[in-house]
Design a protein around this nucleic acid. Structure first.
Length: 192
DNA sequence: CGGGCGATACCCT
DNA sequence: GGGTATCGCCCGA
C-alpha cells in the first residue's frame, strides 16, 4: 500500500528509520527494499541545504515526499526523499536497496556490476540500477503517474529487521551524529 | 569480501 | 578554482 504525505512530513531523523524495509518501485517493474538510509536535517552542517537555497538544492526545500536528486563526484546520481515542512531543507538519502524484482533490467543498467550484491549497494549504484537521474529531481513520489513510488509492501519483513543507528558515511562535517540507519546483518548494506 | 587508490564534471565561492 | 552525501579496479585472505 502507498504511504501518505504525512509519513514524509516529519523530522528526517524520524522518517529515516521508518523507511527501512519500505519498497521503492519503478514504473517498469524494478523494485528494491530499502536497507540503508541517512538523514540530513534542518540546520545540519553536513546537509547540502546548510548554506541556503540554490538552484541545485531547490527541491530539498520543497514539499515532503518529492525526490531531491543530485550529481555526486561529477559522475553519479544520488537520490534523497524530501522530508518535514516546506522550507526545512531536510531529507533522507537512500544508500542501499535489496533488489527484489526487475533484476534483468538492473543488470542491464549496471553492466559493470560484478555481482547482484553490487546492483544497489551504495547511493550511486542504486540510482543507476533503478534508472533515477537528474530528470527525476523534484518528482513527487505520491503522484498518480509517478515514475517512482514508495510502498509499504515489506514483502518479507524479516524478524531481525529493526533499525540500527550508526554514523553517516562520506561527509566531513557533523561526523559524530548517528543518523545513518541500516538493517543489521543485511548483505546489501554498503558498509556493515 | 574488505581495504586502498585514482578518476570524474558539476556547482557554488 | 576547489571540494565533493562515490565507484570500480586491484590486491590479498
Amino acid at each position: 500500500m502507498k504511504l501518505a504525505r504525512a509519513f514524509f512530513a516529519r523530522d528526517s531523523r524520524l522518517v529515516a528509520p521508518d523507511l527501512l524495509n519500505k519498497v521503492l518501485v519503478a514504473g517498469d517493474g524494478r523494485r528494491g527494499r530499502i536497507v540503508e538510509v541517512e538523514a540530513y536535517a534542518e540546520d545540519d552542517p553536513a546537509a547540502h541545504t546548510y548554506g541556503g537555497q540554490t538552484p541545485r538544492n531547490a527541491s530539498m526545500f520543497g514539499p515532503a515526499g518529492h525526490l531531491y536528486v543530485y550529481r555526486s563526484y561529477g559522475i553519479h546520481w544520488c537520490a534523497n526523499i524530501v522530508c518535514a515542512a516546506v522550507g526545512s531543507g531536510a531529507g533522507v538519502l537512500l544508500r542501499a536497496l535489496e533488489p527484489l524484482d526487475g533484476l534483468p533490467l538492473m543488470r542491464a543498467a549496471r553492466p559493470l556490476a560484478r555481482s547482484d550484491r553490487d546492483l544497489c549497494r551504495g547511493p550511486g549504484r542504486l540510482s543507476q540500477a533503478m534508472g533515477i537521474t537528474g530528470d527525476d529531481d523534484g518528482a513527487d513520489l505520491l503522484a498518480r503517474a509517478a515514475r517512482f513510488r514508495l510502498l509499504d509492501d515489506s514483502t518479507p519483513p524479516p524478524a531481525d529487521a529493526h533499525a540500527h543507528a550508526t554514523p553517516r558515511i562520506g561527509i566531513s562535517k557533523a561526523v559524530d551524529q548517528p543518523w545513518r540507519w541500516i538493517v543489521p546483518g543485511n548483505r546489501f548494506v554498503s558498509r556493515g
